[in-house]
Design a protein around this nucleic acid. Sequence first.
DNA 1: GTCACTTCCTTCGATTTCGAAGATAGTCCG
DNA 2: CGGACTATCTTCGAAATCGAAGGAAGTGAC
Lengths: 380, 380
Amino acid sequence: MNERLPVQGAQGDLLRLVATGKAESRADLARLSGLAASSVSLRVEELIDAGLLAEEGSGASRGGRRPRRLRLSPTAGVLAVADLGAHHVRLGLLDLSGTPLVVEERSCEIADGPRATLDRIADAFDELVAAHVPAGVPIRGVGTGIPGPVDPATRRVVTPSRMPGWNDFLVADHLASRYDLPILVENDANLMAAGEARWWPDHENLMVVKAGTGIGCGVIVNGRLHRGRGAAGDISHVRVRSDSSVICACGHPDCLEAYASGAALMTALSEAGIKVTRPADIVGLVHDAVPEATSLVRNAGRRIGEVLTVLVNFFNPDVIAVGGSLSAAEPLITSIRAAVWERCLPLATRDLEIAPARAGRDAALLGAGALLLEAALTET
Amino acid sequence: MNERLPVQGAQGDLLRLVATGKAESRADLARLSGLAASSVSLRVEELIDAGLLAEEGSGASRGGRRPRRLRLSPTAGVLAVADLGAHHVRLGLLDLSGTPLVVEERSCEIADGPRATLDRIADAFDELVAAHVPAGVPIRGVGTGIPGPVDPATRRVVTPSRMPGWNDFLVADHLASRYDLPILVENDANLMAAGEARWWPDHENLMVVKAGTGIGCGVIVNGRLHRGRGAAGDISHVRVRSDSSVICACGHPDCLEAYASGAALMTALSEAGIKVTRPADIVGLVHDAVPEATSLVRNAGRRIGEVLTVLVNFFNPDVIAVGGSLSAAEPLITSIRAAVWERCLPLATRDLEIAPARAGRDAALLGAGALLLEAALTET
DNA sequence: GTCACTTCCTTCGATTTCGAAGATAGTCCG
DNA sequence: CGGACTATCTTCGAAATCGAAGGAAGTGAC
């Protein structure tokens, strides 16, 4: 039921191109892969025989013979992916092209420790597979997002805050003891960035900011996730310019998170006598034009924007995609834009897009799918 | 006399591995290139026949037969490289492995405009070639560094400050009219980063800070220069936290450059009645333990370090190499280190090295050589 | 409809690349 | 100094890849 993908050599590249939607025909594959058309035909033949690809009707003509459209076979396999939060886990099954077959959310206390939590996720995977995957369709990979830093070398959780019992835990090894498959363990903001990247196909350098309870950020460089030492993309503990002085949970004064995160805004609102329980409530207040909320969100956007100016000058991204529950509040993005436009170098902002994230709520799951496909295709 | 490198297919990879010093024998090449040992032998044979590689004695044994050492043939060709400053140009000839054959500095006013300046460089190249290159050894590429932003797509100079007449000038095209060869035009800090990268062979992610009259920075991601839209790496116009308010030449208040550049330090020293004419003079004052100078340098280091904290958290480099004339002042690097260690996330600084640049004065020329070799090997 | 043209895909001989086996040339140790 | 071992490099048949040519299946103009 669980098998590694039986691909070798150039087959992997071709399968990837079809799975990511970049190629739909043998001709596309020849153009994009650099292989000779004849070699492509041979490999595609093998992939069809292996049950990984399928021919399905024909595509639109580009002025000549219509291409025979290639698709991933529905029996090619599924990926089991999860995104772990503090009090719940979002999980689902994807086909190899990253399309969700089923997604659901379950409650789950991360404070219960890694073993209990991961077993809970694995049990949920088993249930979903039993309910939604026909017999004979194998699982090809298992992945999960973690709300804390993950060392890319050892794939263990390192110095997480609010995750008691997880420090130095070898998440990948524990999952590997249950699944003999490619295993992905990655920071949740990084997964979100990887998922978002698919929606910006012609853009090589992205920053994806997640504005929710905390402030996360993932970076795509040259189309690939930049991990650094595992903390890459962190912007929440940058010092902001401020008159007063607030000590952040990390011990340093005046972190961005202490001023502009959903948690900080909720504290400020409740001090003003306005009751909110989730960051999404703030969006509602902004839509209802509650002045305190709008002003707070605008302020948060300006602060985030000011931090981004440094990074835009340095990194010159093509796109800054803003996601997370707070991103639905329009003033947030508007004021981020204003701060960046005002202060950055013209060359850096010339073609820069600052826009709401496109991938939606399942961004992290989609990102896990994208990275898992990559892992399944290269590690053979 | 000027010819493109006659390499095709896998030959390029092999030549690059030898030129960059990563491989010295056929066995090295087989290991590093992923090709079969037999294929490597065939290609090497061709490269030797083409006069690009040469066999030279044998290397050290690793417990078995000694390898036959491969070297670039001295007749393989030379690269002509320059690094343009405001009032002078440093230029030289390198062999294909990036070793300087001759380097010299000439005065040259960038304000004379692009045509006069570039022709002056090209004339200098011709003189150097006539004097130092035996007949029959071809030029394989021409490159120059520019003290301003270069659009990587069109390779034209964009919105430079202090370079009258250069805006939108197509530097590469102008050089191409004189040399039918691979042409490189790149920002000088980027070249310096590319040159420095060779001295940190096992490090994939570098920031190279150039602390001189101005403050430049180049970024190496995954071993390759990150260009962004042409301004990537800029850190000089980041806003710093400050009580007073200084307007920078760029029009914005409190840019890092206005506080921590060599130019700013010189202004502050002369206001204190201490006369200096070049940033290097400041280093002398620090060595002589002049308290005003030491204090200023320490302050500048702290400010630069504070900006770097943001970038270290975000980018997680393996190394920050500090070069430029000011970097010879020890307190500069010490205080950069202190600021970064204090404020950054532990995961980001765990194995981070902050060290003086290793490539020396010719870093930019070496970088130009490295990038030109790349261009000469891939563009065929 | 037919003719010129374009794109898609396959066939087939030529070329390149591979990999196993072997020749070559060392080291290390008793 | 001889034998076991290791690493380097080459030889040669097998397998993969290529590219030119051609068939298949369209579009668009007249």
